[in-house]
Protein backbone atom coordinates (compact mmCIF):
# COMPACT_ATOMS: atom_id res chain seq x y z
CA UNK A 1 0.00 0.00 0.00
CA UNK A 2 1.83 3.01 -1.24
CA UNK A 3 -0.05 5.53 0.91
CA UNK A 4 1.33 4.05 4.09
CA UNK A 5 4.85 4.34 2.78
CA UNK A 6 4.14 8.02 2.04
CA UNK A 7 3.42 8.42 5.76
CA UNK A 8 6.74 6.80 6.58
CA UNK A 9 8.54 9.10 4.15
CA UNK A 10 7.06 12.14 5.88
CA UNK A 11 8.08 10.68 9.23
CA UNK A 12 11.71 10.49 8.10
CA UNK A 13 11.41 14.14 7.05
CA UNK A 14 10.10 15.11 10.49
CA UNK A 15 12.87 13.21 12.21
CA UNK A 16 15.62 14.77 10.10
CA UNK A 17 14.30 18.31 10.54
CA UNK A 18 13.94 17.77 14.27
CA UNK A 19 17.60 16.73 14.49
CA UNK A 20 18.54 19.85 12.54
CA UNK A 21 16.53 22.07 14.87
CA UNK A 22 18.09 20.43 17.92
CA UNK A 23 21.58 21.17 16.61
CA UNK A 24 20.69 24.76 15.72
CA UNK A 25 19.28 25.37 19.17
CA UNK A 26 22.42 23.85 20.66
CA UNK A 27 24.51 26.26 18.58
CA UNK A 28 22.49 29.25 19.71
CA UNK A 29 22.64 28.19 23.36
CA UNK A 30 26.41 27.79 23.15
CA UNK A 31 27.17 30.95 21.22
CA UNK A 32 29.20 32.27 24.15
CA UNK A 33 30.57 29.00 25.53
CA UNK A 34 34.33 29.08 25.97
CA UNK A 35 34.84 25.81 27.83
CA UNK A 36 34.00 22.39 26.39
CA UNK A 37 34.93 18.80 27.37
CA UNK A 38 37.19 18.67 24.28
CA UNK A 39 38.83 21.88 25.40
CA UNK A 40 38.68 25.28 23.76
CA UNK A 41 35.56 27.17 22.71
CA UNK A 42 32.38 25.51 21.45
CA UNK A 43 32.27 24.49 17.79
CA UNK A 44 29.14 24.78 15.67
CA UNK A 45 27.42 21.54 14.68
CA UNK A 46 25.34 21.09 11.58
CA UNK A 47 23.26 18.21 10.23
CA UNK A 48 23.95 17.03 6.67
CA UNK A 49 21.01 15.31 4.97
CA UNK A 50 21.07 12.43 2.55
CA UNK A 51 18.14 10.87 0.70
CA UNK A 52 17.64 7.23 1.53
CA UNK A 53 15.25 4.69 0.01
CA UNK A 54 12.89 3.14 2.54
CA UNK A 55 12.83 -0.63 2.75
CA UNK A 56 9.75 -1.75 0.81
CA UNK A 57 7.09 -3.47 2.88
CA UNK A 58 6.94 -7.21 2.39
CA UNK A 59 3.46 -7.22 0.92
CA UNK A 60 4.27 -4.70 -1.78
CA UNK A 61 7.46 -6.55 -2.59
CA UNK A 62 5.52 -9.78 -2.95
CA UNK A 63 3.00 -8.25 -5.29
CA UNK A 64 5.82 -6.90 -7.43
CA UNK A 65 4.05 -3.56 -7.58
CA UNK A 66 6.94 -1.37 -6.53
CA UNK A 67 7.80 1.14 -9.19
CA UNK A 68 10.73 2.49 -7.27
CA UNK A 69 11.14 2.42 -3.52
CA UNK A 70 9.90 5.54 -1.74
CA UNK A 71 12.75 7.87 -0.92
CA UNK A 72 13.00 9.20 2.61
CA UNK A 73 15.62 11.39 4.18
CA UNK A 74 18.22 10.65 6.83
CA UNK A 75 20.90 12.57 8.68
CA UNK A 76 24.09 11.44 6.93
CA UNK A 77 26.50 13.09 9.33
CA UNK A 78 26.74 15.76 11.97
CA UNK A 79 29.44 18.03 10.74
CA UNK A 80 31.50 20.01 13.21
CA UNK A 81 32.29 23.43 11.85
CA UNK A 82 36.09 23.86 11.74
CA UNK A 83 36.03 27.61 11.32
CA UNK A 84 38.77 28.99 13.60
CA UNK A 85 37.38 30.56 16.78
CA UNK A 86 36.74 34.25 16.90
CA UNK A 87 39.40 36.36 18.67
CA UNK A 88 37.63 38.88 20.84
CA UNK A 89 39.40 41.49 22.94
CA UNK A 90 37.96 40.94 26.40
CA UNK A 91 40.78 41.27 28.97
CA UNK A 92 38.49 40.86 31.99
CA UNK A 93 37.27 37.40 30.96
CA UNK A 94 38.68 34.48 33.01
CA UNK A 95 39.42 32.50 29.82
CA UNK A 96 41.17 35.38 28.05
CA UNK A 97 44.78 34.82 27.00
CA UNK A 98 47.82 36.73 28.19
CA UNK A 99 47.24 39.53 25.65
CA UNK A 100 43.62 39.91 26.70
CA UNK A 101 42.13 38.09 23.70
CA UNK A 102 39.32 35.59 24.26
CA UNK A 103 38.73 32.67 21.87
CA UNK A 104 34.95 32.69 21.33
CA UNK A 105 32.86 30.26 19.25
CA UNK A 106 32.36 31.41 15.65
CA UNK A 107 28.57 31.20 15.97
CA UNK A 108 26.58 33.76 14.05
CA UNK A 109 23.19 33.86 15.81
CA UNK A 110 21.49 35.53 12.84
CA UNK A 111 22.57 32.77 10.48
CA UNK A 112 21.36 30.11 12.89
CA UNK A 113 18.03 31.88 13.44
CA UNK A 114 17.38 32.03 9.69
CA UNK A 115 18.30 28.37 9.40
CA UNK A 116 15.98 27.61 12.30
CA UNK A 117 13.06 29.32 10.57
CA UNK A 118 13.74 27.36 7.39
CA UNK A 119 13.87 24.10 9.38
CA UNK A 120 10.57 24.88 11.10
CA UNK A 121 8.95 25.63 7.77
CA UNK A 122 10.19 22.32 6.34
CA UNK A 123 8.89 20.55 9.43
CA UNK A 124 5.47 22.12 8.91
CA UNK A 125 5.50 21.10 5.25
CA UNK A 126 6.11 17.49 6.30
CA UNK A 127 3.26 17.69 8.79
CA UNK A 128 1.00 19.03 6.03
CA UNK A 129 2.02 16.18 3.73
CA UNK A 130 1.26 13.71 6.49
CA UNK A 131 -2.15 15.29 7.05
CA UNK A 132 -2.99 15.04 3.35
CA UNK A 133 -2.05 11.36 3.26
CA UNK A 134 -4.12 10.66 6.36
CA UNK A 135 -7.08 12.37 4.72
CA UNK A 136 -6.65 10.17 1.64
CA UNK A 137 -6.48 7.05 3.79
CA UNK A 138 -9.71 8.10 5.55
CA UNK A 139 -11.39 8.54 2.19
CA UNK A 140 -10.29 5.05 1.19
CA UNK A 141 -11.66 3.64 4.42
CA UNK A 142 -14.96 5.43 3.74
CA UNK A 143 -15.34 3.30 0.61
CA UNK A 144 -16.14 0.24 2.68
CA UNK A 145 -18.69 2.00 4.87
Amino acid sequence: MSLFSALRVSATGLEAQRTRVELLVENLANSETTRTPEGGPYRRREAVFRSEPLPAPFGVMLAGLTGDPPVGVAVAEIRVDDTPPERRYQPGHPDAGAEGYLLAPPVNPVEDMVDLMSAVRSYQANVAAMGAVKEMLHRSIDLVR
Partner: peptide
Protein backbone atom coordinates in the same frame (compact mmCIF):
# COMPACT_ATOMS: atom_id res chain seq x y z
CA UNK B 1 -1.64 7.64 -4.37
CA UNK B 2 1.65 7.19 -6.23
CA UNK B 3 1.79 10.91 -6.89
CA UNK B 4 1.17 11.58 -3.23
CA UNK B 5 4.05 9.31 -2.35
CA UNK B 6 6.34 11.19 -4.72
CA UNK B 7 5.20 14.54 -3.29
CA UNK B 8 5.84 13.33 0.27
CA UNK B 9 9.34 12.23 -0.75
CA UNK B 10 9.99 15.65 -2.32
CA UNK B 11 8.84 17.46 0.81
CA UNK B 12 10.92 15.21 3.06
CA UNK B 13 13.97 15.90 0.88
CA UNK B 14 13.42 19.64 0.55
CA UNK B 15 16.75 20.29 2.29
CA UNK B 16 18.81 17.35 1.00
Amino acid sequence: AARQRVTSANVANADT
